[in-house]
Design a protein around this nucleic acid. Structure first.
Length: 476
RNA sequence: GCCCCCAUCGUCUAGUGGCCUAGGACACCACCCUUUCAAGGUGGCGGCACGGGUUCGAAUCCCGUUGGGGGUGCCA
């Protein structure tokens, strides 16, 4: 165990890993490593999650994907909340014995009733001095002291709460089980956590937690509440409405590096990014520079468009070998890898996600002799000019005995198109549609080179015939 | 209702009293390049919510207004 600060990340398993959680995890991770501390993963093992171990595993896998892995020295865990269950109750007992907490037998209805009568919003402290002993049906409440609680937050500075506005909150339910707030604090104490970095939504709970730390005889940790991530409606990202599952982005072909980089730019800018004119910054630099004090105070919109832009940049940053390796994983197994290697350099700079790879190159892998499926619009546009069919015929003839390299194929087409006084941009359209069925795609001549003479000619002839041209004498 | 947080281009942000004629990134638009589409290059559009102070000077400090968001469980 290292001796530096101890950062905890305490996600609740819900079946998918939230991008917001990923960001706080990353922030904790960056700090723990930079400061020579420890990243402690404490997973909340709720009843529901206990029946679905894959949920917990999902968190671990997701963290590993973004580079937070137990293989690293600065990692401790996962720990589970239940591992400290006895300590939770013991802590509550201590508080009761020392008079810092008391039992109350009011039901929720009664509390509501009293609040209504007095025009208050919550519990009024009715049982504070009634000296009730523990008994089934009674809850243990924390005796909130008078005064003011000041939370010193690394991101926001001092935030002060008037204790009068904090009701005597429940520690132990009437069935004797501890509530989350207590469990959380006790876990943090047990784990000797020194720094709590989490989303801003937890800020209002913090004075309660801080009071508990103190009541339990411990110095509270350093707090830091980073702004939440929101959707286009400026609402906190929710699983129901928004695409928030990190796994989903992973499966959609986003790169971990791009995701990590993008997530870290939400609420924070790497120093030097402005001078460099780019926010694409490697993790090592982020880790070396990230400071809580520099984090923005306002919520940030999770912009998939910008994520996509980052992703495209990261794809272009890959070495050719790496790209072939990564992109190859997206291809159907039966596709010839050698063929893909030949075309790979030409699609690498045309992608925003790896997921798009198959659709870009599929025309190279259609089964031999299969028909090209022409996109109607592309076809109509390509064969609208009156010269299109004739040009196709000429191309077929020229390609019949051209040497089969991209350069020569280009020259051959250029020679043909001169007869029609058109530019290359136009001339290549019918050829492209004939061969790929579409009007956009990787560079044409390189594609043809990879496709090979026989298949190219076959498709050209088929297209010419489909377009109504007489191909009977072509290629003789 | 009560409590807390927040407020710079469409979005993410730089800015910590003079360097701001408010900078960068993404998006968008135009042009260049060009073998379609991209990529790349160049340029452009576009913002300090409002009102009062403080100060020689305010995006920056203070107060208020308005507007957002979050929290308010015997949920986690």
């Amino acid at each position: 165990m290292t001796t530096g600060p101890r950062f905890r990340f305490a996600p609740s398993p819900t079946g998918s890993f939230h991008v917001g959680g990923a960001r706080t995890a990353l922030q904790n991770w960056a700090l723990a490593r930079r400061l020579g501390g420890t990243f402690v993963l404490r997973i909340e093992d709720t009843d529901e999650a206990r029946n679905r171990p894959e949920w917990t595993q999902g968190i671990i896998d997701a963290l590993a994907w973004i580079g937070i892995s137990s293989d690293d020295a600065h990692f401790e865990g996962p720990h589970f909340q239940s591992e400290y269950a006895e300590a939770h109750v013991a802590a509550a007992r201590t508080l009761f014995d020392s008079g810092l907490a008391y039992y109350c037998d009011l039901t929720a209805e009664q509390i509501q009733q009293r609040a209504k009568e007095q025009g208050l919003s919550g519990y009024d402290g009715y049982s504070r001095d009634r000296g009730l002993e523990p008994a089934p049906g009674r809850v243990l409440r924390f005796r909130v002291p008078p005064g003011t609680t000041i939370v010193n937050d690394l991101v926001r500075g001092d935030v002060s709460f008037d204790n009068d506005t904090i009701e005597d909150f429940v520690l132990l339910r009437s069935n004797g089980t501890p509530v989350f707030l207590l469990a959380n604090v006790v876990d943090d104490i047990e784990m000797a956590i020194t720094d709590v970095v989490r989303a801003e939504e937890h800020l209002p709970n913090t004075p309660k937690q801080q009071m508990l730390w103190q009541a339990l005889g411990h110095t509270p940790p350093r707090w830091a509440h980073v702004p939440v991530l929101v959707n286009e409606q400026r609402k906190k990202l929710s699983k129901r409405r928004d695409k928030v599952a990190l796994e989903q982005y992973r499966d959609d072909g986003y790169l971990a590096d791009a995701m990590v980089n993008y997530l870290m730019t939400l609420g924070w800018t790497p120093p030097g990014a402005e001078a460099a004119g780019s926010e694409i910054v490697p993790w090592v630099e982020i880790e070396a520079a990230f400071r809580l004090e520099d984090v923005t105070h306002s919520p940030a919109f999770f912009d998939v468009k910008k994520l996509a832009a980052f992703n495209g940049d990261y794809i272009r940053l890959m070495s050719p070998d790496e790209f072939v390796e990564r992109a190859g994983q997206e291809l159907p197994v039966e596709w010839d890898r050698k063929r893909f290697v030949a075309i790979a350099p030409h699609i690498q700079e045309r992608l925003t996600t790896l997921r798009e790879v198959p659709d870009k190159v599929d025309f190279l892998f259609w089964p031999e002799g299969s028909d090209v499926e022409y996109d109607p619009d592309a076809w109509a546009k390509a064969f609208a000019p009156e010269w299109a069919i004739a040009l196709l015929g000429d191309v077929i003839e020229a390609y019949g005995d051209s040497s089969w390299s991209a350069d020569d194929l280009k020259s051959a087409l250029e020679a043909v198109m001169e007869r029609y006084s058109i530019k290359l941009g136009k001339a290549q359209a019918p050829v492209r549609v004939a061969v790929t069925g579409r009007d956009v795609g990787p560079p044409l001549f390189e594609s043809l080179e990879v496709l090979g003479r026989d298949e190219t000619l076959r498709r050209l002839v088929n297209a010419a015939s489909a377009a109504g041209g007489d191909t009977a004498n072509v290629g003789r």
